[in-house]
Each structure stands twice: as C-alpha cells, then as structure tokens.
Design a protein around this nucleic acid. Structure first.
Length: 507
RNA sequence: GCCCUCGUAGUUAAACGGAUAGAACACGGGUUUUCUAAACCUGUAAUCGAGGUUCGAUUCCUCGCGAGGGCACCA
C-alpha cells in the first residue's frame, strides 16, 4: 500500500522511527492525496525533508502550510489502480496483515432469559462487522456466542415461568412459556425454558440480523467437562486464591484489580467469574491468539477482573481487547424509558428490523462510535429511516448497475489511461482507499469508519456521474469510463458486504 | 464518596495534537429534451464553561456544570 511506501521514504530521508511518522488523508482540497506532519514533529523545515524525497509514484511532493509535506500521486499510478481493482474483484481490499492469526470475537452473549433488545443489537452488529473486517485483513476471526445456560439467572427464569413469588422476568414470552412448560422445580423449568428461548427466540433473531455465529458456546458444558473445577485447582495450586469467610477468593488485586473477587460462594455455588476464568482458558486452548469482547457499559466493572484472570493464567493482557459499548437508552415521546427484561419494557430487535428494515438498522448502529451514549427513539427512527443515508449509498450502487445494464459491457481492455478528468481521478482516489480503511479498522476497531467511507465514496461517485457522461459516441472513452464504473461497483459492493448491508441492483 | 465514558449546528453525529471543524437530516434558494432527481449545486447554522500545556487543542491536563454507567459471596 502506498501509505507504507511513504513511511519508508520518510524513514530514509530522516531519522524518524516508523511510529513517529503519521501519514493521513488531508482534509482540504489541494493538499494532495496524503500528508504528513513529520517536519513539524521533528521541528525541521519541511522543505529540507522534501528535498531528500524521491519517488516515481508521485507527481509532486511539496511542503505547505506551517510545515506539512503533501504527496500528490501521479496520474499514471491512479489509472493503474482501476486495473488492479478490476483484476482483484471481490478480493480487493483483502490484506495479509493478520497473517492467519486466530482471533475470537465474542459478542451479544445475552442470557437466554428473553428476546434480544436494542442494546444487544449495538454490540451485535459491531461485533459481526469487526469479524468481517478482521477476516478481510487476513486474520482468521471466529464469531462466538457464550450462552449462560446455567446458574442463578436460569433459576430465576424458572421461577418466572412457574409464576411464584421469586419471579423476575416479565413479558409476553413468559406467558407463552407457561403454556408449554410444566413443573415445579425452578432449575429444571428454567433449563427447559432457556433452551426454548435460545432456539425459538434468540437464534431466529440472530438469523434475522444476518449474523452467523461460528460457535455457540455453552457455559453448562464447562461444568460438565470439569473445566471449571480444573481451573479452580490451578488457581489454588498457584496460590492465586484463598479461602475466607467460607468463600473461595481470587487474588485479582495481584493483577491490578481494585479488590479480590469471589470464585465460589460460601454456599458452595460458583460465581460467574469461576466459569469465565475457565472459559478464558478454554478459548486460548482452542488456539486463539487474541480474544475480543463486546460488552455493554454496565459490565465495565468486570473488565479488570477478566484481565486479571487472563494474567493469572499466564496469558498477556494485550491478547484481550474488551470493547465497552455505551448503553442504548430508549426514548418515547421525549421521555426515557428504562429498558429491562425484568420489567418487560424494551424494544426487541425484531420489532425494529420489521419496522425499518435490516439495512437501515445495521447502518444506524454501525455509524455510531462505541463511546456515544445512544438515545433511541423508535418514532424518530421510523421517521428518519425514509431518508437514511444507507439508501444514498445503495442508490449509487443501483445507478451503477443501471449504467452497466444499458451499456452491455463486454470484456475488453479497460483503457484506463484515458481517465484524466478531475472527477475521474478523484473517484479513483476514493476507490483505492478501501485497503487502508480495512487496515485501520482492523487495528483500532473503529467500525464507524466504514459507513463514513461508504457515504464518502457514494458522494464522489454521484459527483462523477454529474460531470462525466459514461456512455457516449466516443467508444474508447466509454470503454474507459465503464471500467471505472465497474471498479466503483466492486468497491462499493465490497464495502457494503463488510457491513453486512445489501447492494441492490435496482431501486 | 471513588472510578470509567460522554458533552460539537435545531436534530443525529465525524475528526491518530495540525491546514478553512468534515457530514447527514431538517429549514431556505436553484438544477431534468441526455446513462435512475432516493441525485446534483447552493444558503443559514456548532466545539458546555473557566484556566493550563503547546508553534498549534474538539482532541492532552486541572477545576466546575450536565448526562449515562460502574464500585456485591448480582447476573
């Protein structure tokens, strides 16, 4: 990729280390294709550095502003990129930076005690798309859903279905479960109910979200295979746990946690943490080099102890990335409604997808950084779905398909050396960003970069469409522009498919 | 009380310490005998407040104000 080339060039010309050199896209027009502030950082005159840079790829390299160095790609280089895209097709954007490393991306993992809600959607779509991006970047990413199918919450589900005084979950689905499950043992009733919730509610919903999990992992199996007991033994042997007041504690403070945590309660029952430690070990044992988790902000307090657990087991904290998503708040008529499966007030993902369509829902969640505190108003979402930016992107794709249909393009030389209109070149510049978008996102997990890029690309295409008539009397130019349009289609489609959004041929 | 996250046009929101704060929706004005007007062009409009660090701060630091979350032998 060209960005790497620039970094190498600068390294040759200066004493700067690779980490110091930042090469970005300049904001304004006229500042070139790439820019670096290295001269400012090194406190050296930009001109001096520019004088030492030599490369054929660029039409010019110039110092500008307070000390930026701007790189302008040559026309010939840009034109060649069209051929590259046409050749690589759907694999354009694919990288090898992951070197086949196995990565586990765990997301949603909602307790099987009720339907998936908006909050699950947020982490769900982001996790799914991150897995796509990682795979594109050359990692081997697996999607995993951890099913907490045993323990306290399952028992509570049982109580809720039985309808006794300890019932906590409410909602239509509980009423349905009451009809099919009979019994009085809350544990057994809960387990049957959890199975039904998983099979008949969660899995179909996940399917509707167009997410395919590679692994559905059952917590119960960790107990059945004695993996929890085994990991507790390790912690005891390594002197990383101790007994106090009848409970077994994990010395998590040794690894940076605020306080030690209970693994086994005084009553003999394991906490979530016990199985989570076993689960961590299980994942690493399966060969994953990196574990990524998408959690809601309400699980923030859990981060330190999971990292501590990983370290206690002899793994490196850096092998774990926990992405904490801020919570989704539900607004109705201007007022916040507390969402809770326990009160029965929530909007399920089904409802939302049915109302506004999957593409809109996906796009809606993907555009928002995990750090934003999201207020969700269903009425507003419905209203805004009509002119959602996702249609803007899809429209560009449909427009392209229309042109290609009309032109009945045949296989022929792309003739991309005829592309020299400013808008043609601008479009190529956007197209060739995709690999860099993939690279950046695979590294910093900022998923919202993808929808932003898609909108940007669509905008430039629409501008190109305005300025450059594709099908004309000039056979050769038509051929060249059709190649460019086809390349745009490929890149748009690749980008949409990374986001799990459809690319319609007609609208 | 302590810890984490956030505060940007009317609304939703972008910006590894950099150039003129980039968009979308809404609102105002314009564009079609020509490949899809779900488009294009154009106007109004924004960094919560006060200090500090820096050649340069939406970004980093301190304090204040406001919102959400976390501080369990809960999940």
């Amino acid at each position: 990729m060209i960005r790497q080339e620039i970094i190498k060039l600068i390294q040759k010309a200066t004493s700067a280390s690779e980490d110091e050199i930042k090469v970005t896209y300049p904001e304004g027009e006229g500042f070139g294709d790439y820019t670096t502030n290295i001269a400012l950082r090194l406190k050296k005159p930009a001109n001096e550095i520019v004088g030492r840079l030599r490369a054929d790829l660029f039409e010019k390299i110039e110092a500008a502003g307070p000390g930026f160095i701007n790189f302008f790609l040559s026309k010939e280089y840009l034109q060649k990129q069209v051929d590259v895209i046409l050749k690589q097709k759907e694999s354009f954007g694919k990288l090898r930076i992951g070197r086949g490393q196995k990565v586990n991306v765990e997301f949603i993992s909602a307790n099987p005690t009720g339907p998936l809600t908006l909050g699950n959607g947020r982490g769900g779509f982001c996790g799914d798309v991150l897995a796509n991006v990682l795979n594109k970047a050359g990692f081997e990413a697996k999607r995993e859903y951890y099913i907490n199918d045993t323990g306290e919450q399952v028992k509570k589900l049982g109580h809720s279905v039985i309808g006794d005084s300890e019932a906590v979950y409410r909602g239509q689905y509980i009423e349905e479960l009451k009809k099919t499950i009979k019994g009085s043992d809350p544990e057994k009733v809960g387990e049957s109910a959890a199975k039904i919730v998983l099979q008949e509610m969660i899995k179909p919903q996940v399917l509707k979200m167009k997410i395919k999990f590679d692994i559905w992992f059952s917590e119960k199996i960790l107990y059945q295979k004695k993996e929890v007991a085994a990991v507790l033994d390790i912690l005891k042997k390594e002197n990383l746990s101790y007994e106090s007041e009848g409970a077994l504690w994990f010395k998590s403070t040794q690894f940076g946690d605020d306080k030690d945590r209970v693994l086994v309660k005084a009553g003999g029952e394991e906490t979530y943490l016990a199985s989570d430690v076993a689960y961590l070990k299980n994942k690493f044992t399966r060969g994953f080099k990196k574990l990524i988790f998408f959690w809601g902000a309400d699980h923030y307090g859990y981060v330190a102890r999971i990292l501590a657990a990983a370290e206690a087991l002899g793994y490196d904290k850096k092998q774990i990335d926990i992405i904490v998503m801020q919570l989704v708040r539900l607004i109705r008529e201007g007022k916040e409604i507390r969402m809770s499966k326990r009160t029965g007030t929530y909007v399920t993902l089904d409802e939302l997808i049915d109302e506004v369509g999957l593409d809109v829902v996906r796009f809606f969640f993907l555009t928002k950084s995990p750090d934003t505190h999201l207020n969700f108003d269903l009425a507003l979402a419905k209203e805004q779905s009509e002119n959602n930016p996702v249609y803007y992107i899809q429209y560009a794709h449909a427009r392209i398909c229309s042109i290609l249909r009309k032109a009945k393009m045949k296989e022929a030389e792309p003739l991309s050396n005829l592309l020299e209109h400013p808008m043609e070149l601008k479009l190529i510049r956007r197209l060739m960003r995709l690999p860099e978008i993939v690279e950046d996102t695979a590294q910093d997990f900022q998923i919202q970069r993808l929808p932003q890029y898609a909108v940007d690309l669509a905008t430039v295409f629409h501008q190109f469409y305005r300025d450059c008539r594709v099908i004309s009397e000039d056979k050769n130019l038509t051929q060249a522009r059709l190649s460019l349009v086809l390349a745009t289609k490929i890149v748009l489609k690749n980008t949409l498919s990374l986001m799990g959004i459809s690319a319609p041929e007609k609208m």
